[in-house]
Each structure stands twice: as structure tokens, then as C-alpha cells.
Computed example of a mutant assay.
Amino acid sequence: MRLAVFVDQVFWRDGQDLSTDESYVLFLQSLAGEVNGMTLIGRLAPEPRRAPYPVDSDTFSLLPLPYYPDLHRLWRADPRIYGRVRREVRAQARNWDALLVSGPHPLGQMIARECIALGVPVVLVVRQNLVQQMAAHRGLKRWAALAAAALLEWDFRRLARGRTVLAVGTEMADAYRRDARQVTNHFACLVDKSRFEMFSKMATGGDPTRLICVSRLSPEKGHAHLLSALARLTARGVEYHLDIVGTGQQTEPILRAQAERLGLGSRVTFHGYVPYGPALFDLYRRAGALVLPSITEGFPQVINEALSLGLPVVATRVGGIPSFLSHEVTALLIPPRDIPALADAVQSIVTDEALRHRLSRNGRALMGDNTLEANRARVLEALHDEIRPRP
């Protein structure tokens, strides 16, 4: 099977080497032994650079999209971009047996329609609720972003009619089940069996008062709510320290100012970007729990890593999270934006040793049945089913 995959992420070239800073490519590379070749369709950065995740040139080729920094600036870009992409897709699509397209996304949806017109089977991937993601932002552009997101979502559901959809979590699975021929829950887990065994042997939880939050610094990730919740714990006399791992050029100064304003300066450490490897693992080992206060999500890879390590998790009931985790069994789940509930959950994790042990034990058991290999098999089954001739 020759597979094309539309991913809205940036790729960099450094000589002949290709790389990206989004770990999703590792899941795609796990399909290498099951396909005859894979074409990645993504943005090519204008400047050379070596990003953290190298792309195997023996397995992958890149159909480069013109570079745009983000979706908002794509709308303002030269409209001739669409014509150039359409011509490139038409030239290559006849060599593809299937297209996997993540969305909603305007370029991805255009590419999907070109492939459908050429008779190439298309499988859609819904990784999170785009409307909720746009709603997390503020400012004058918010309403325009919400309207555009709603239109894209409506059009993506039209594309789903009679096709297979891989949806992250029951919320999006239920939304697309009305139109799609088949909907399968999809968790692109990057923890394979060997890494799961490695994580399982690492000792964590040395300091139950130490919390870690690993995600990009962006409004929809809910860091501001977490800081407000921690201020409540300070008032209650609860001991804690928060390690924030991630970057966000616009959001980080706002969060730092909020931490100082709330008197949390000595209780919160901003680590910036920490590459996947020993430095990040060391922060995990020192932590007593992972906290993810997101307003909207797909399914964060960091949850898979935390569960494999036996690190208790506090997370919001958004995206695919409540489809995978059970409240008070494998995690503590709270409503998004609920600062009092977040404060109470964090306090329980910090102070209740029996709770931490139960979540740690059950989380590891859950991950043992949901490694990369298990999730890869679900994706391949969906692709083969879409390609298979209908009676």
C-alpha cells in the first residue's frame, strides 16, 4: 500500500535531511513496515534547520506545501497557493493507494476532494474539536476564527459521508458517526512495547508535592486556570511545586506575570522546551503527578508517557481524554475551566498516598493494552477496509 498523509505541521530541511518538531511523525513512521512508501503532505519551512524528530528518507517523501506560520495567516496568504497545491496533488495522487487527511483544515479538505475525484480512497482523522480550540482564544479576531472553524467543521463532516473516520475520543466520534460509514476511536500512541517496559522500570513519585505540566504554552492549554487553582492551595497551606515544560512566545510572558501577581514565583518553574529524552525523563521521575488543565484537546501524548511511568494524572474531560481515562480509576478528571475543582483534585493528589498508588497501578495496566502496536493495528485495519472494494 502506498499511502499519502496530510499533516498540518512544519518540516525543515538540513541538506538532504528532513525533520519536524511534532512527535506525531513517530507514529506515522511506525507504519513503515506495513506500507510500500509514504508521502507526507506538510509545510516546508523556508530556512534550514534540524528539528528534534528526523524523518526517514528511505520510507518518506515530502510533498511540500507553501509555508504559512499558522492557520490564521493561511487565510491571508496568496490565494494562488491553492492552485499550486492542487496541481501538485494531481500530478502525484495517481501513485497513492489511499490518503489519510487530518482536519478540519482548508488545504487538507481541498486535497481530499482532489483525491476523491481521482478515485483515491480517503480516510479522515479528527484529532480535536476545532471550534472549541478557537473559542479558547480572545480578542477581536475570535469571532471571525469561530465562524471559519464552524464552516470548516461543517465541510469536513460533509467529506465524511460514506467514508471511514478515525476520531480521537467519543465526543468527536459521536459527532461524525451520523455521517461516516464507519468511525473508529484513534489514539496515536507513541509508546511501543519496548518503551513501555523501559518506562515501567523507572522510579517516579519521589516527591508527591511536585507537579509537572507538559504542553505548549497556548491559551487553550489552560495554564492560567492551573495557576489560579494553585493560588487557592497556597491559601490553604498546601505544599507543592509546579514544573511547566513547554514554550509559547506570546503566552509565556503572560503566565509568568500571572504567577508573580499571585505570589507563586518561588513555587513555579518555567523550564521552556525540554527535548524528549533524559532531561524530560528526569523531570518525570522527580514529579508526583502530571496535571493537564486543557480547555480543548485531541489526546496528548504526555498522558501515555505518564501512565507508562506510573505517574498519576489530573486532566480535564475534553477531547479523547474521557474516552481513555476513568475518573478515580486511572486519573482524576475535572471539567475544563473549573478552577475550584482543579484545586481540589491537585490537593487530593498531593495529600492522598492511597489515591496516588491506585491511579499509578491502574494507569500502567491500561497502557499495557494500548501501546503503539495496538493503535497502529486499528489504523491499518481502517485503511485496508476503505481500500477494499465494496460489493
Rank of each mutant, 00 (worst) to 15 (best):
L325I: 11
H72D: 15
D385A: 13
R181N: 08
T251C: 13
A32Y: 00
F270R: 02
A112N: 05
D338F: 06
R127M: 12
G206Y: 03
G298F: 06
E220V: 05
F11R: 01
G298H: 10
R364S: 00
A315D: 12
S57G: 10
D179F: 14
S200K: 12
L217R: 06
I212L: 06
P46W: 10
T247A: 07
I334E: 06
A224S: 15
W96I: 04
E381Y: 09
N129W: 04
R142Y: 02
D385T: 12
T20L: 03
L380S: 05
E252W: 00
R261A: 14
E220G: 06
T234S: 11
A4R: 03
D344C: 08
D58P: 02
R178E: 13
S30E: 01
T296Y: 11
R317F: 07
T296C: 14
G119A: 12
A167R: 04
A51M: 13
Q109H: 03
P336R: 14
Q128W: 11
P79Q: 03
R73K: 14
A77T: 05
R388I: 08
M198W: 14
R157A: 08
L217K: 06
L325M: 08
R113H: 05
R210E: 01
L366D: 10
P106S: 05
K193R: 15
A4T: 04
E328Y: 11
P48L: 03
A224G: 09
A279I: 07
S194A: 15
L311P: 12
T351D: 04
E114I: 13
E239Y: 08
R90Q: 13
C213F: 01
R376H: 11
R317G: 09
R216N: 13
R178W: 11
